Lab assay of single mutants.
Amino acid sequence: QAKEDFKKMMEEAKFNPRATFSEFAAKHAKDSRFKAIEKMKDREALFNEF
């Protein structure tokens, strides 16, 4: 479920497709859906799949 929420957050964010993961992470670090994925490498993997 956390992965689905994370993907939904990325869809809602409508970020620049050229944005890096660190830019995305800095902007969304306080979002509970971002925090729900415990490991940063897992967050980055989901970001890269998107």
Rank of each mutant, 00 (worst) to 15 (best):
Q1G: 12
Q1C: 15
Q1D: 07
Q1M: 15
A2I: 12
A2M: 09
A2L: 09
A2W: 06
E4I: 10
E4A: 08
E4W: 03
E4L: 07
D5W: 00
F6K: 03
F6T: 02
F6A: 00
K7S: 06
K8Q: 09
K8G: 07
K8M: 11
M9R: 00
M9L: 08
M9S: 03
M10S: 04
E11A: 10
E11W: 05
E11C: 07
E11N: 09
E12V: 04
E12F: 02
E12I: 01
A13T: 12
A13V: 10
A13I: 07
A13E: 14
K14F: 07
K14L: 09
K14S: 14
K14W: 08
F15T: 14
N16P: 11
N16E: 12
P17N: 10
P17C: 09
R18W: 10
R18D: 15
R18T: 14
R18V: 13
R18E: 15
A19D: 15
A19K: 06
T20L: 04
T20E: 08
T20F: 01
F21D: 04
S22M: 11
E23D: 12
E23Q: 06
E23I: 00
E23W: 04
E23Y: 01
F24N: 06
F24D: 05
A25H: 04
A25C: 14
A26C: 15
K27Q: 15
K27P: 03
H28V: 15
A29D: 09
A29C: 13
A29F: 07
K30L: 10
D31S: 00
D31R: 00
D31E: 05
D31P: 00
S32F: 06
S32C: 11
K35D: 05
A36L: 02
I37N: 03
I37A: 04
I37P: 01
E38K: 14
E38W: 01
E38G: 11
E38M: 07
K39E: 13
K39C: 13
K39A: 09
M40H: 11
M40C: 04
M40R: 10
M40P: 08
K41M: 09
K41L: 06
D42P: 01
D42S: 06
D42K: 03
D42R: 01
R43M: 02
R43H: 00
R43Y: 00
E44S: 01
E44Q: 08
E44Y: 03
A45P: 02
A45F: 10
A45L: 14
A45H: 07
A45S: 13
A45G: 10
A45T: 14
A45Y: 05
A45K: 14
L46F: 10
L46M: 12
L46N: 06
L46S: 04
F47D: 06
F47Y: 08
F47P: 04
F47S: 05
N48E: 14
N48M: 05
N48A: 10
E49A: 10
E49P: 01
E49F: 06
E49R: 05
F50D: 14
